[in-house]
Structures are given as structure tokens and as C-alpha cells.
Design a protein around this nucleic acid. Structure first.
Lengths: 103, 103
DNA sequence: TACAATATGTCCTTCTCGAGACATATCACG
DNA sequence: CGTGATATGTCTCGAGAAGGACATATTGTA
């Protein structure tokens, strides 16, 4: 019962605050789009459409929260993202709000 | 700069997790619709449409997260809401997820 | 050699949700 | 007596989002 609540709330948070969850994941470890997709699906048990993910990553870069570098693996290329100082500040704001919610 | 981040994130959380914020407020102190509206607008500095609030309160009652009693003040009546045990469990799930996000 | 997985991107159509309007009643105050 | 605040509800229309398709290329495997 309370477990179904958990799943529902997690899904709502990931859906509505997806950009923040992406920042959190990339902050823990630089990642590329496809890797993020697999990680989110495994950790949160939700389907993440790549048609939603890639535009969002590009957008986070445009906003200055992420930077990317192209990583070559043979002929295949990955766009590996890292969180910028600006993105880290955004995350700090998020965490500070969560702490307030817990008071 | 980080302050504008704060406001933006708070607004997103209140908008997308409004039902949970309502439960939090009512859990702290039984309240009626109009009182909630005023409180949310004062605390979060956002406009809360009553056209969105009242259906959501009725819905939370249908879901079993709130109960209401009619309070008479002269001829004027207030529908005062209280959080049920089920609603408190929902809140506990929410807080537990927040704690995990902070790890 | 064909299929599934890796990898990244855009685009269109449907459909849901929200903003604002419509509705009604009491009360306080100038 | 009229206006603004208190108080609670419904409903409709349009914008923006979501889902899925379209697009392309490499790599591993059965």
C-alpha cells in the first residue's frame, strides 16, 4: 500500500522534475544520453522516451547547466555531459528546498 | 541568481505536487479551501486558482487522503479538511523519497 | 545477413490540463 | 446600497506537452 504510494510519487517527481533528476545523475558521474536513459529506466522503473530525453539534454546545455564533450569509441561517438557550476548551483537550490520541505 | 532558481523550483514543485503541498498544510493545521488559498499564496508567492483548488480538495477526499466537516459561522459555512491516516501515510512516503534524494 | 542494441537527433498529431469564465451566497464596510 | 472580501463550486476552449513515428549510423550476435 505505502509501497504503491512510493512508486507513484517517484514517477511524478521524475516526470515533472526530470531535468533536475538528470542533473543529479550526471553530477554523480558524467554520462551520455543513452546511458542516462538506461540508468533512469533501471533506477526509477519508468520508460524514458529518447524523443524527450535528447531535446532536454540539449536544452540543459543551452541553459548553461551542462557541458558536453564528444567521446569517440572506434567510429561510434558519445556526447558525454558534465554538470557546470551553474548546474551545481541549481542542484544546491533544489536540495535546499527539499530540506525545507522536511522541516 | 540562485534566488531566482529557488523561486522557479518552488513554483514547479507547488504546481506539480500541489496535492502533496495541500496535505502538508492541512496536516500542520486543519484548514478550509479559501484559507488554504490565502496561505499558499502568502507562503509560496504564487497565484492559486480556486477553480483548480476546490476540485483537487474534493478529489483528495474521494481518494481518502482528507476528510471534511462543515463548520458554521453564522450562515456562512466552511468545509474544514483534516488529513486521514491514509493521507499521513502518503506524506510519509513523500518525505522518505525526499530524504533519499538528499543522500 | 538480419536483428537487437547502442547512439543521437527531429517532427507531427493527439489529447490532456490549465487559465479563465460562469455561477451563487454571505458578510463587512464606507 | 454597492463594492470587495469570504466561501465553494462547475465548465469550456485552446495551448502546450506527450507519445510515437521518422531518420540515420555503428556494433555485436545468432
Amino acid at each position: 500500500m505505502s509501497e504503491s504510494h512510493r512508486k507513484e510519487i517517484v514517477q511524478r517527481i521524475v516526470k515533472n522534475l526530470l531535468d533536475i533528476q538528470l542533473l543529479r545523475l550526471i553530477d554523480a558521474q558524467p554520462l551520455w544520453g543513452y546511458g542516462i536513459k538506461k540508468k533512469v529506466e533501471a533506477e526509477f522503473h519508468i520508460k524514458l522516451r529518447h524523443g524527450a530525453l535528447y531535446p532536454m539534454l540539449n536544452n540543459l546545455e543551452k541553459q548553461g547547466f551542462l557541458t558536453s564533450r564528444s567521446e569517440q569509441q572506434g567510429r561510434r561517438k558519445r556526447k558525454v555531459y558534465t554538470v557546470t557550476e551553474n548546474g551545481k548551483e541549481y542542484l544546491r537550490s533544489y536540495y535546499s528546498i527539499l530540506r525545507e520541505q522536511l522541516k
